[in-house]
Design a protein around this nucleic acid. Structure first.
Lengths: 185, 185, 185, 185
DNA sequence: GATGAATGAGTCTTCATTCAT
DNA sequence: TATGAATGAAGACTCATTCAT
């Protein structure tokens, strides 16, 4: 209970203000407990930050790991699969908005997951073999990461309504770009 | 001279270790001057950081602002123009590697520049009108930003050779993705 | 306890050495605690100084506020009343010797209190109406202030025994001067 | 020339802001010269402060030293003499307004001068012998000192027009108080 | 005489962490 | 479990003073 409360406050403040501007004294004040209480539950400031990142990362990787769940038969099915995946990710991001900022620094693992997805699609003959797998995965991950950060935390240009899109709408735009680029459809 | 020296050291350390882990005492020690000397040239730690970001941002925006320099006639010419632009950006990033990390937080202005580029291409009839301009610009900027961060600062998955690409190679991969997506060519 | 201890030490040192020569490190050293402990109890060096002045001022104004407590019937009674008041003030000054130096900079409020006392005496017909009230109050306050500063903190001319007078003796001399001037009695 | 200029600026700032808040860098900036220039003319910050006080003190003591210039015959003449003296002092104070704040800390010497004046008046039979000479001189000096500080530097209560009195008017009020006290005339 | 860059000791303040109760 | 007082290392910033030119 207490532990979860402190954890939640820490998550929120780390994301809102960053690691350094988040003081233990702020966290305990918001929780209404004494300074020492924090150290009954957590070893140090660093350890709570690592725990937050770790737990969030695992849950996110679970979402990504589901990948293109079914064996895609046609290009359209693959696109639909990707659309579903991205919508899942964006939904997770929205529901864990404070986790995300922290998670976005932990990219390598996520990128690996994306690379495996792409590779599987190539093996299924759905994507051309010509591409450099790692670079493509990195580009894709960049896409996700950047758009999520803008969507959730801004700032965005004044006349952009990015922030108001639903996870599904965002996924649709992202998938179009993912598969067809600027020129596509 | 002194000022430039301190500036350069600060840029390097801010990028390497971040703002908070960079101590004034480190900067002056590396420069071989006394602590007070720093304050002869700069008002405070915060002010030097702002100056670094500001100056870097301006130079980067200049690069982006050049955009698709010539009026593109064919799709191929547009792709080539984009390839040139991205190569310019990546070259700038490599030559200002320490600036970049700081600059990547100042995305809005850069995104605007990209949006203008895309809009011009649409007006020239080179790109379909169907797309949401802001979202596309955000996706594009995400791409650039993310790939630059990985290219320069890592970390990258162990078996990826992203770090060893030249600006031109990186631009080629990025442009393919930019225009044709995963499915393209 | 701790708080009072630090407060007392600060009062003493501020008065003895002045604000700027009083270092936090001295205060905590004298109290035998760590530097940080000071900041557990006080927000800053400035805030403790303000608290000292504020609290002292209030207590002193209470003393002055009592004024000529009883309705004076004769000149002699008024003089006796004033004698009592001044003796009160001088006693307070002696018992709060370190406060005084700080308080003597906060004169306006005290002067107002004196002015009200004089005005009341005029209304009772005890003092001539001819006088400029404000100037007289200022002269009176100057008298008190100056003589207290000399009495408590010196320096005084070598052959003066001002420092050895009791509050009552000092009040007697001051009252004679207050009412009759150099020529008086 | 330069020296006098720096001296004048220092006098003004010491008085306006106090010794500690007056920075050498402020003084030289206001003079439009370099930091080092200060040290061509003065040994240190402390030495310039001492020089200011010393020179002002001497000139003020000269004024006071003139005392009751002529041998007073009647009480009225003595009062007139005192009125002249105080007007002299107040005029000096006004013309050296920034010196005064500093000088007011150097009271002992001035008090001695007043004591001699009073003593002489007693020897002439103009003042009663009953009084304690030192205490009276201290009271008198307190009067002068306090009223000058209020007159020149404030703060004064809002509805007081003390600040607008001429040296002569101020001297008249002070002399009345000096000789006759609150009850007088 | 004058400059202004350079110095560095001195101070305040912060904040993660400890620990007796 | 919980408290909150106490710690002290660390770090930003100030400013009188020096000195080569």
């Amino acid at each position: 209970m207490r532990r979860e409360q402190l954890l939640a406050i820490a998550v929120e403040r780390f994301a809102k203000y960053g690691y350094h501007k988040t003081k233990i004294s702020d966290i305990v004040a918001q929780a209404g407990v004494a300074q020492g209480t924090f150290y009954w539950y957590f070893k140090s400031k660093e350890s709570i930050a690592l725990e937050i990142i770790q737990s969030g990362k695992e849950r996110l990787l679970q979402v990504i790991g589901k990948g293109y769940r079914t064996e895609p038969g046609t290009v359209q099915e693959m696109v639909q699969g990707s659309q579903r995946l991205l919508a899942d990710i964006f939904r997770f991001a929205r529901d864990n908005r404070y986790f995300m900022e922290l998670l976005l620094t932990e990219r390598v693992a996520m990128e690996e997951a994306f690379r495996r997805n792409i590779q599987r699609a190539i093996e299924f003959g759905m994507l051309p073999e010509s591409m450099d797998l790692h670079v493509r995965a990195a580009l894709l991950m960049s896409l996700i990461e950047g758009i999520v950060a803008r969507w959730l935390f801004g700032p965005v240009p004044p006349d952009s309504d990015l922030a108001n899109l639903t996870p599904e709408q965002l996924a649709a735009e992202a998938v179009r770009f993912e598969f067809f680029g600027l020129l596509g459809i």
